[in-house]
Computed example of a mutant assay.
Amino acid sequence: MLEMISESALLMVIVIFVINIFYVSFLTLRTVALTKGYRYLAAFVSILETFVYVIGLGLVLDNLDQPVNVIAYALGFGVGILTGLYIEEKLALGYMVVNVTSSQNDKDLPDHLRTLGYGVTHGTQYGRDGARTTMQILTPRRYQRKLIETIKELDERAFIIAYEPKTIHGGFWTKKVSSRKVANYEPEHVEEILEEIYEEEAAEANDETNEKEEVQSRKE
């Protein structure tokens, strides 16, 4: 097989391009996983990276005597970085913290977001134009865009800053983030979803009250 690849200039270019995409993709994923603290994932990806290096990259490096092969190598390197970053983005490892400042103090945005499954710490601060509701929201990274769209639906003038925390320790944030609840709605229908949830909660609370009254009446 190696002889067949070596004898075909076109096949050699394709092999160099594809192998370098795989190699650099794994290299990029391993680097990102290490920076995010996913040691075991980084170790697993490094095994795949080494496998590609031993099996294929030696062939690539031995055939860089032609300009077209060098071009294929360079293009594969660039595409490999983009591919690795794309895969990492789809995996969406870790959490994001979204800081929100809202002037709509009459809207209970923190409770709305908690109801939808996000972890929220909120308070009141003061800016040039008076009181503002400030929120620090924890969300799985794969739901960051969904959270931001939800906030815009509830308050289109909200000021939003998002960043990735390097360390999360203590507290109850990660336990309060309900991925299942967050996944079960679309931002454009958030107000209707909230109304349904609150109606269900009110009905459940009413049923509990009626049961307690019935038990109390029986005791009397």
Score class of each variant (00 low, 15 high):
residue 205 A to Q: 12
residue 158 A to V: 08
residue 152 K to R: 15
residue 151 I to S: 00
residue 161 I to W: 13
residue 65 D to V: 10
residue 180 R to L: 11
residue 33 A to S: 11
residue 43 A to C: 04
residue 71 I to L: 15
residue 67 P to T: 06
residue 178 S to P: 02
residue 46 S to M: 08
residue 103 S to E: 14
residue 191 E to G: 07
residue 27 L to S: 15
residue 218 R to Q: 13
residue 173 W to P: 01
residue 168 I to N: 03
residue 74 A to Y: 06
residue 114 R to F: 09
residue 214 E to R: 12
residue 157 R to N: 15
residue 214 E to Q: 14
residue 83 T to R: 02
residue 203 A to T: 11
residue 136 Q to Y: 07
residue 113 L to C: 00
residue 69 N to E: 06
residue 43 A to P: 01
residue 53 Y to K: 08
residue 65 D to R: 09
residue 2 L to Q: 10
residue 39 R to D: 09
residue 34 L to C: 00
residue 12 M to E: 07
residue 102 S to T: 06
residue 121 T to F: 10
residue 10 L to A: 13
residue 152 K to W: 10
residue 21 I to P: 00
residue 54 V to G: 02
residue 33 A to H: 00
residue 192 E to A: 12
residue 135 M to Y: 02
residue 50 T to H: 00
residue 35 T to W: 07
residue 116 L to S: 01
residue 167 T to Y: 13
residue 15 V to C: 05
residue 160 I to Y: 04
residue 161 I to L: 15
residue 99 N to F: 14
residue 88 E to H: 07
residue 32 V to Y: 03
residue 69 N to P: 01
residue 104 Q to T: 12
residue 182 V to E: 01
residue 11 L to I: 10
residue 46 S to G: 06
residue 150 T to R: 04
residue 135 M to H: 01
residue 31 T to R: 10
residue 140 P to G: 04
residue 97 V to K: 06
residue 178 S to M: 00
residue 13 V to G: 05
